[in-house]
Computed example of a mutant assay.
Amino acid sequence: MIKKILLVLVAIIAVICIIASFQSDDMNVTRSATTTAPPATVFKIVNDFRQWDAWSPWSKLDPTMKKTLEGPPEGVGAVYKWSGNNEVGEGSTTLVESKPNEKVGMKLAFVRPFAGTSDVQFTFTPEGSGTKITWAMQGKKPFVGKIMGLFMDCEKMCGDQFNEGLANLKKLAEAAPKA
């Protein structure tokens, strides 16, 4: 009887692994929001890690998260490192591209809960008298990520956090003093 149960479990695990192996290696998440603030205002907030706690959805998930900033205070070379609870994990974000009022590009490196890297871009497109903010992230899914994706919608979970962050960013940008 135990042998049959073990064989069934092994078969189930094998089927899950086979199905996961056919999942895409690529992970892409993109969300957008529109604000009445001009591109320069939104760019200034995103380009400066010192302002991230005011709008980042992950800061609220672990208010006691340890954070350090390295390099210049803003722009290319600025580094934000964090280590927190299981909801936020540990890693670093490095600004690798900074085009005033247009784009901020980042390299995101996770240490835990799973090691991995992703490329992140914030783009700021004039729209009417305001700005369309697009937050995009691309990376490779490790095999364990493919398995997890069979049981939970990781794109939606991350996308929901992007939406929350964009809503917070919009409020912050619209409350900023007008230039």
Rank of each mutant, 00 (worst) to 15 (best):
N28C: 10
K66F: 07
F22P: 06
G77Q: 09
E74C: 11
E87C: 02
K81A: 10
E74L: 12
A37W: 04
I18H: 09
T131H: 06
S118T: 15
G139W: 03
G89I: 05
G75S: 00
Y80G: 10
E127P: 00
T93Q: 12
L108F: 15
S56Q: 04
T41H: 00
V42D: 02
F122I: 01
S21W: 04
F124R: 07
S98P: 04
V88E: 15
V111T: 14
G84M: 07
F49M: 09
W135A: 06
R50N: 12
D119W: 04
I133D: 06
T125C: 00
K81I: 04
T134R: 00
L108Y: 15
S92W: 09
P142K: 06
W135Y: 08
E87F: 04
V29P: 00
M148K: 12
L95R: 10
T35M: 02
A136R: 05
N101H: 02
F122N: 04
A115R: 00
S21A: 09
G130S: 01
T30D: 05
Q121P: 03
T93L: 15
T94F: 07
V46G: 01
S92E: 15
A33S: 13
T93C: 13
V46W: 07
E87Q: 15
D119F: 09
S21N: 05
F122C: 02
A78S: 10
I19E: 04
S24N: 05
I45K: 02
T64G: 03
K140E: 15
K44W: 06
V96S: 11
V104Y: 14
P39M: 06
S98W: 09
S83H: 12
K67I: 14
M137Y: 13
V88L: 12
A37I: 01
V144A: 08
W55A: 02
G116N: 01
V29W: 01
S98C: 09
N86Y: 08
E74K: 13
T94G: 02
D26R: 11
K141I: 08
T68G: 11
Y80W: 15
V96K: 12
G116M: 04
D26Q: 13
F114A: 05
V29A: 00
N28W: 11
D119N: 10
D26L: 10
T93M: 15
V42K: 01
V29C: 00
T64A: 13
M65Q: 14
R112Y: 15
S56N: 14
T131G: 04
D62Q: 04
L95D: 12
E70V: 01
T41I: 10
V104K: 07
V88P: 14
Q51E: 09
F143H: 06
G145R: 00
S32K: 13
L95T: 15
S129G: 10
L69S: 11
M148T: 07
D53H: 11
F114Y: 07
F49Y: 10
N86K: 12
G77V: 01
E87A: 12
M148N: 08
Q23A: 07
Q23L: 05
E127H: 01
